[in-house]
Design a protein around this nucleic acid. Structure first.
Lengths: 235, 235
DNA sequence: TTAGAAACCAATTTCTTTTTGGTTTATATT
DNA sequence: AATATAAACCAAAAAGAAATTGGTTTCTAA
């Protein structure tokens, strides 16, 4: 015959677990023993322990993470964005997709708020990037143009998010593929694309700015993929 | 007899180094070979090479770091995005505008990539937030819903940017104006708005997800403004 | 006195191993 | 037939070991 406890065994384990948490002196970080140890200590199977842990987690009383462990309390939120950690977890494809999500909308917002001063700085970036003697120089002006657009939103938080995105982009390794001409050619696709973005912003064309930015980033993405393909075929 | 070159041997090596830098294809990060290799390649002793590197470093043309290597260009400064600094420079209105720029696009991307598991977690958040007894609990599930949507993009960088945005949002002081009911009422606007977002994501309706998120955030913004007005009139 | 080679140091990276939550599979057990 | 259990397996993360690298010291030789 079944006792009430046997009818709801998982409830017993949850209770057992609560008692354990109440009486046990957990370390500073609130980490509790690994499931394999804890299940042995409580004299239950790992499967049953995990069911109980699921309950407590859904109640928000603890959080878990593979490789880290199980902790009481709520999952800590980082007080700082670790660029290096983000870069380690990410990859070029993700960075590109993130840019495609974020930057067109920043361009759209910039079209609404950009000042004449901001626009003339964009024009300066356009001109300098055309005059660049080396790819390194070109990249400098390209980066500055995109940041000027972010600044044109007049929203320091958006600029901060853009900087974070950009820092991760630089930190992620593309597999060193510096092919083709030694310096940017006048026919380089980015020149006209950049101008279309700035034109749209200048004309307060929000939709146009977003579209132009998206088109530009899609071209960049395609070129990078082509380079990767070539590198793969050659190597 | 001494030739001019022999009289200033380090100058020769500096020149040799400059030539090397000009003609060599450096990797993306601008790192040049370790001193031990480079000295062998240039046919000079490591001591003499280091003297030349000292010159170029003092000119600001390169930077070095133990364990990392020697790099051309200027030393990168920020490896962290300081949330506290961002929050200090920002304000509630900016945060709200940034959310309106970022989150609808995250919802759009999520509608494309969300897994059934992610969607059921969203549903769980919806249910729990409805059952919340306190505003604190409600906020917990609200936050988790928005983060689940970000996670559904399956893009760790976007999740990171969302977390940064969220951390700044928390850090910015809203003036702590918690008026009206002690707990969320069933008529609370967010409930239906949240459901529209999740519905759109579930139906892979990218435009609908973006619109629903934008509508939701605009309502949040309006409510906050109304609260501020009331607080201003009362105070 | 100076240059050069080697050894040494500590910061950093890279590679390997171990740990850990999550998942699957097979075997009992009821 | 259904469920619980144990074991194996997986990928994320941490921990540890080994190799790399700029900086410094020491010793030798010219």
């Amino acid at each position: 015959m079944l006792t009430p406890n046997d009818a709801h065994p998982e409830k017993t384990i949850v209770t057992q677990l609560r008692a354990y948490l109440a009486q046990t002196d957990l370390p500073e970080d609130g980490r509790l023993p690994p499931e394999r140890e804890l299940s042995a200590a409580l004299g239950v199977s790992r499967t049953e322990l995990r069911k109980a842990l699921d309950v407590l987690e859904s109640e928000g009383q603890l959080w878990r993470h593979v490789g880290k462990g199980t902790f009481v309390g709520s999952r800590p939120l980082d007080t700082f964005a670790d660029i290096a950690a983000l870069a380690r977890r990410s990859n070029p494809a993700e960075v590109m997709r993130a840019r495609l999500v974020i930057e067109p909308e920043i361009a759209r917002a910039a079209a609404f708020t950009a000042t004449p001063a901001a626009i003339s700085e964009m024009r300066l970036c356009l001109a300098r990037s055309r005059q660049a003697d080396t790819w390194r120089q070109y990249e400098g002006w390209d980066t500055r143009l995109h940041r000027t657009i972010a600044e044109a939103t007049q929203n320091s938080l958006l600029v901060g998010l853009f900087d974070t995105l950009n820092a991760v982009r630089r930190a992620v390794t593309w597999g060193r593929l510096r092919t083709a001409p030694l310096r940017p050619l006048p026919s380089h696709h980015s020149f006209t694309e950049h101008e279309m973005i700035v034109d749209a912003i200048e004309h307060r064309d929000m939709a146009g700015a977003a579209t132009a930015m998206r088109t530009h980033l899609q071209t960049v993405e395609r070129k990078l993929l082509e380079k990767q393909m070539r590198a793969a075929n050659e190597g």
